Computed example of a mutant assay.
Amino acid sequence: MSTASLGLRQGGLEIRQFLRSREQVMFTLAFPAIMILVFGSIFTGEIGAGVKFTQYFVTGMIATGLMTAGFQALAIQIPMERDRGVLKRLLGTPMPKWVYFAGKVLMVAFIAVLETAILLAVAALLFGLDLPDSGAKWLTFLWVSVLGITACTLCGVAFSSLARTGRSAPAVVTPVALILQFTSGVFFVFTSLPTWMQNVAAIFPLKWMCQGLRAVFLPESFGAREPAGSYELGRVALVLGLWCVVALVLCLTTFRWTTRRDG
């Protein structure tokens, strides 16, 4: 079997395992859509410049969905597999190590595409979300999403080494994800947050993913309300690209196939 076929088969296995876990499917795919239904029904007004709150909020929920699929899912799932000895057993097989990660990447890509489609459909059909009206905006949507999900996936793999056990992984990862959502302009207009909070959020990828997606779904004139007075797409690409590099280095230097008690 070719190496590409091995990666595809591992990806298919990861996707099937994901779909068979009803709780995981519910949390990963349904929860962001439910949040849009709740917030979109409560906040029906505008935030200014003719922009509806739903139009602003959806950009943050798409970015959150990408972060959940990449960072949160892997940072919790990998420690659980490590704790159950799955990774240790894989080391004893002839399967190349990269195939395991290829399977995770394909699973994350599948979830990200499916979840984004669900969110766009719910927001467009129920709340009148204005979809991108030009090829340039769709291209921006594509590269922001690809860079964002890549950074989040690598961060998830790197962060998976922090949890001491599989049971403790959700307690370690979930608070980090929630704090990033509240400080990165997902639930609130980013510039309404305290300046110190904006500066802290600007260190991490989610803020830049939200900002890049706002350039896609919000009018160009709304960019004047960003902290720098524009959407800064060049800086968005730079920061997300740097996170991809930094997280990759952390993955290569810190990833563990066995638990600490196994040595």
Rank of each mutant, 00 (worst) to 15 (best):
D133W: 12
V172C: 06
A158H: 07
G128H: 07
L125Q: 10
L154H: 06
S168N: 13
L139V: 04
L147H: 10
L142H: 02
A163W: 02
C152I: 01
F159G: 07
A123Q: 00
K137E: 13
C155Q: 12
A171L: 11
V172R: 03
V173P: 04
I118T: 00
F141H: 03
W138G: 12
P175V: 05
V157C: 07
V173G: 01
D130P: 06
A169G: 10
I149E: 12
L162D: 06
L126A: 14
S168P: 01
T153D: 01
R164P: 08
T165H: 05
T165Y: 00
L139A: 15
W143Y: 10
G148H: 02
D130H: 10
L129C: 06
K137A: 15
A163G: 02
I179P: 00
A124H: 13
L154Q: 00
I149M: 07
V173H: 00
R167C: 11
I118E: 04
L120I: 09
A123D: 01
P170R: 03
C152T: 08
L142C: 11
A163C: 06
L125R: 09
L129D: 09
V173E: 01
P132A: 14
L129P: 03
I179N: 04
A158V: 05
S160G: 12
L120H: 07
V176C: 05
W143I: 08
A171G: 15
T174R: 14
W138A: 13
S145T: 07
L178Y: 10
C152P: 03
L119K: 05
A124R: 08
A123I: 00
C152D: 14
T150E: 04
P175H: 06
L129I: 09
C152M: 14
F141K: 06
T150G: 12
T150V: 07
G166D: 11
I179W: 05
S168H: 01
T140R: 15
P175K: 06
T150F: 01
L126C: 15
I118P: 04
P132L: 13
C155K: 09
L120G: 11
I118N: 01
L126W: 11
C155L: 14
G135F: 07
L180V: 05
S161G: 00
A177K: 00
A171W: 14
G135M: 11
L147R: 11
G128V: 00
V144C: 14
A136N: 13
W143N: 05
A169Q: 02
V146M: 13
A169K: 02
T153C: 12
A123N: 03
G166E: 07
V173S: 08
L139S: 09
V172H: 08
A136E: 15
L147G: 11
T165I: 06
V157F: 08
L120P: 05
L154A: 10
L162I: 13
V122T: 02
K137S: 14
K137D: 14
V144W: 02
F159E: 03
A171Q: 14
T174V: 13
D133E: 15
V122N: 06
S160Q: 11
C152S: 12
I149D: 02
T174I: 14
V144Q: 10
T140G: 01
